[in-house]
Each structure stands twice: as C-alpha cells, then as structure tokens.
Design a protein around this nucleic acid. Sequence first.
DNA 1: GACTGTGAAGCCATTCACAGCT
DNA 2: AGCTGTGAATGGCTTCACAGTC
Lengths: 210, 210
Amino acid sequence: MKAPRIPEATVARLSLYSRFLENLDQKEVGFVSSGEIAEGLSINPAQVRKDLAYFGDFGTRGVGYKVKDLLGCTLNILGLDQKWPLILVGAGALGYAVCDYQGFNKRGFSIVAVFDSNPAKIGKIVGRIEVLPMVKMPEIIKNHHVRIGIIAVPANAAQEVVDQMVKNGLEGVLNYTPVNLVIPEGVEVINIDLSVGLESLTFKLSQKEL
Amino acid sequence: MKAPRIPEATVARLSLYSRFLENLDQKEVGFVSSGEIAEGLSINPAQVRKDLAYFGDFGTRGVGYKVKDLLGCTLNILGLDQKWPLILVGAGALGYAVCDYQGFNKRGFSIVAVFDSNPAKIGKIVGRIEVLPMVKMPEIIKNHHVRIGIIAVPANAAQEVVDQMVKNGLEGVLNYTPVNLVIPEGVEVINIDLSVGLESLTFKLSQKEL
DNA sequence: GACTGTGAAGCCATTCACAGCT
DNA sequence: AGCTGTGAATGGCTTCACAGTC
C-alpha cells in the first residue's frame, strides 16, 4: 500500500463508498462502475475514480470494479479489518441513541462500556450494557484495549470527560458535543455537531425570500 | 445587506461564531477580537475576519467586535430572528435524543410534532410531545407553517419519509440517516452522518501504526 | 499599539478531458 | 465500445501580509 498523503475529504467519502458497496454486495451485484457509485452517492464519477486510485489500481478498464474485492479493500484501508472496541460516556438520550445506532453495529464496532457521572444512572441498562461509574474507566480501557471514546454528555461536562479519556490513553475521540475540546498533540478528535446543519438550512431558506 | 455569494463553509462557521458569542454575552463580555474568537474555535483569525466581513463591517479597528451587536447580526443572518417550527419523524432512540437536544431549544427552535409509522409508538410522549400517526402530517405542517423537517428513522424508511415531506411542501430537510436522499430541485437537504466520523478515526489510527 | 478589512498568494479539492486498457 | 487512471485546468477556501482606522 503506497501512501502519498490522502486528502481528508477522500477518507470521508471512502466510508460512503464502503457502505454503498456493502449494499451492492448484499444484493449480490458483481461489478460496479465509477458512474454507478457516483450516481448513488451524488458525486462526480471522476471524483470516485480519483479517490479509489489513491490506494491502488482496483478497477478493470471497460468493466468497472469487482464489488467484493473493492469492498474488502475499502474496509481494509479504513482499518475495519480489525475490531474496534469503543467506550461511550453519557447515558442520556443521546447516549441511548448512539448505543442503538445500527450504523455502528453493522460496521463491526462494539461499545464495550457506558459511563456516566450521575449516580442515579449507574446500574441502568443501555442497549444491553450496564452503565458504570466513571472510576471504572481506566480498568475497562486497559482490559479491552480500547483506543476510541465517544462523548455524548451535556456540553459543560465535555472537556472534563475528554481530559479523563486522554489521561487513560485513548487516541481518538468522537465528540457529539458542540464544544471545542482542548486536547494534546497526538490525540485525534472528530466533532459531530447535531445542530450546525439546521442553521445552514435556516440561512438558506431565509435567503430564498430575497 | 449585500450578498456577493457566501461560501458554504462560511455559513457553517457562522453558526459556531454565533454560539460562541452567545456564551460570551452570557458572561457579560463586552468586546471580543477576531483572535479570541479564533482561539476559542481553533480557527485562523484572518478566517474569522473574512467570514464576518462578508456581511458588513461589524468591527472597530484597534478594539474588536461588540459582542451584543455581533451576536445580533449573526442571528439575523442565520435567520434566527424568526421562529422555525420543526417536525420530527421517527420516535426511536434517535428521535428521543433529537427532542432532548439542548442545542435546538437554546437556539429558539421548537419541535411542534413527532411522527412515527409504528402504531405501537402512537400516543407515546417524546419530550412533552405526543407521537402522531403519519397521516396527521399535512394538517400539522399547514397549521404550524412548518418549513423544515427532521428525519430520524431507520435507513430503509428514509426515502419514503422525505417523499411525504416534500409532497407536503417542506422546503428543508435535516437527515440523520446514512441514505442519499433523492429530492426535487428547490428542496434543501443537510445530511448528518453519525458514523462517517468514526471511520475517519479508525483510518487515522490505523495509519499511525505504519 | 492594537485590531480590522482586504488584495494577493498559496493551497487543497473538484472537474475536465483524454490516453490507455480490455 | 466502455470504463479506468491521470495530467491539466479550474474553482473555492484558507492564509498571509499589510494598509487603514481607532
């Protein structure tokens, strides 16, 4: 595998390709062209080819890409050929939703523990998993070799939570909180903002009136 | 207000600025510089100034921006000086989370109705709101002048839901489903993918090993 | 002195257009 | 004929650097 530095945007799309291919594979489609992928995802075909070509020559000219092979490659590149145990902090409504979310399970992720700082929540069951107190975090992370944590707590608790995660050696954080987390070099954070998109919509609809 | 076409990315950041300013205002901070905003959001200061300058000259050289004024302007630009009633389809865990999400309420959004196609869910209460059957959608949309809908259903139901939304005149859709929705020209869709970010993380962490 | 507003430069990403394979 | 892989062209966004203002 050669690695001439992959654009951020390409990685994000790779995830989309991979899921798209999974669907095709389930429908037992054998081959697919860049044009078909592009249409299914509302992307430019050249974009699809260029993205895939970063990682090697997967396609056959005149034919397209073999679904099974390409799917395997995308999973491989994304690191999904290995198991990624996750921990989740926050047993509120958002935490429940994350546990319940099919997109994680389907792709081989598994949440091995849910934590909450509220004593009233400890012991409750969130999607088959018992909620644990925060003090158990070090132990769980070590025993399950967890590298990634998910933050689904109220905004004012987010920094405190990520500090603990970092202290316990986590290398990646998925942050559902609208907070700009401060983290040391070497830890990766991905922010998913549930409401910025809504305000893009109101902006656009407001503009329409003019 | 002049409008020389605003970059997509600028609009997204405007939402961040606006929330950041709201926090400052609550702390009764009077003035703020582009550098301070930039630091708080991990952005380049020049970026902040350029973004804000698209909409007019809000700042004072040597001083910075007046928090209250700038906050008002951002809200105005984003269209948040008016009420945006929303409907939500999907009374599962994700739907609960969306209803519960403080980011919407704090910014003046209100969900006026929750719909679900599952008869077992009808009549249940989601965050003070009763779950209604899908057939009530036209009536609610008309009576409350709803323009934006939120989709939080399982993936396989998403297209069907958006079709109904469009048929009933909605102009904007916030889609939490990992599905590429097909919609007619003139309807705005924002996709928020809860899991793509996680796969960016696994990609990066996998690369680290090399 | 401090900070904004902005042309110019630089960088990244997307799209085009076509050569090359099957 | 059909579709991939890719240099070249385009377009958009970000950053720099500095003139202008308080």
